[in-house]
């Protein structure tokens, strides 16, 4: 996993609530056995007018010229609901997103993002509103500072605005250091063995 410390990038506002994982990456693209090749299919049904994905839908926000190169996705409540497919964060990451900002995320999706190093940032409804107001039809560049757990930008009046977010210590440590979580747990093998030795027979 790549390390994450700070990132500054363009925000693209996706003004839809309850975006589910079927929308993020439809099932027909889940048949790969590799970890790559999902980015082009991100939001397939909304992003393309045709089945084969050759005709971009000019109305869809990711296809709007002003938002090309965006690396921060601004979303609405309950983002990533639905299935456990990690292909959804893989697709977002491969498209070029480093962080997703929303007022709430579905649990499994949130965990999957952390596990691959795509930073999910929860902000209050009010802060999300302010970001939508800034990013709608305009270029909003945002800085994500993981060590200080905040995002910052300069608003239309030239003021520096900072919003804080929280993340558990371990998640933060893992993201900042690109920890191999399996390797980390394997370092605790004694603990696991001790637990196993005490388990009832039926278990």
């Amino acid at each position: 996993m790549e390390k994450f410390t700070t990132h500054t990038g363009l925000v693209v506002p996706l003004d839809i609530a309850n975006v589910d994982t079927d929308q993020i990456i439809p099932k027909q693209f889940l048949q790969k056995t590799e970890r790559v090749g999902f980015g082009v299919h991100l939001f397939h049904d909304s992003r393309y007018l045709d089945h084969s994905g050759k005709e971009p839908n000019p109305e869809f926000i990711l296809n709007v010229p002003a938002y090309q190169g965006a690396s921060i996705l601004l979303a609405r409540e309950n983002f990533g609901c639905g299935s456990s497919r990690e292909h959804a964060p893989w697709a977002l990451e491969e498209y070029g997103f480093k962080a997703v900002i929303a007022p709430s995320f579905a649990d499994i999706f949130y965990g999957n993002c952390i596990n691959i190093g795509l930073l999910p940032i929860k902000l209050s409804e009010d802060e999300i509103e302010q970001l939508f107001a800034q990013a709608d039809g305009a270029k909003l560049n945002l800085t994500v500072d993981l060590p200080n757990s905040n995002v910052s930008f300069t608003n239309a009046k030239g003021e520096q605005i900072i919003f804080n977010f929280s993340l558990s210590k371990f998640q933060k440590y893992s993201l900042e250091n690109g920890v191999d979580s399996v390797g980390w747990t394997l370092g605790k093998l004694e603990k696991i063995e001790a637990f196993e030795a005490k388990m009832p027979t039926w278990q």
Partner: peptide
């Protein structure tokens, strides 16, 4: 339900 990174974690560590 778990994601694929967690599937790997369960495989390797239970």
């Amino acid at each position: 339900g778990i994601g694929t990174s967690e599937v790997e974690h369960v495989f390797a560590t239970q």
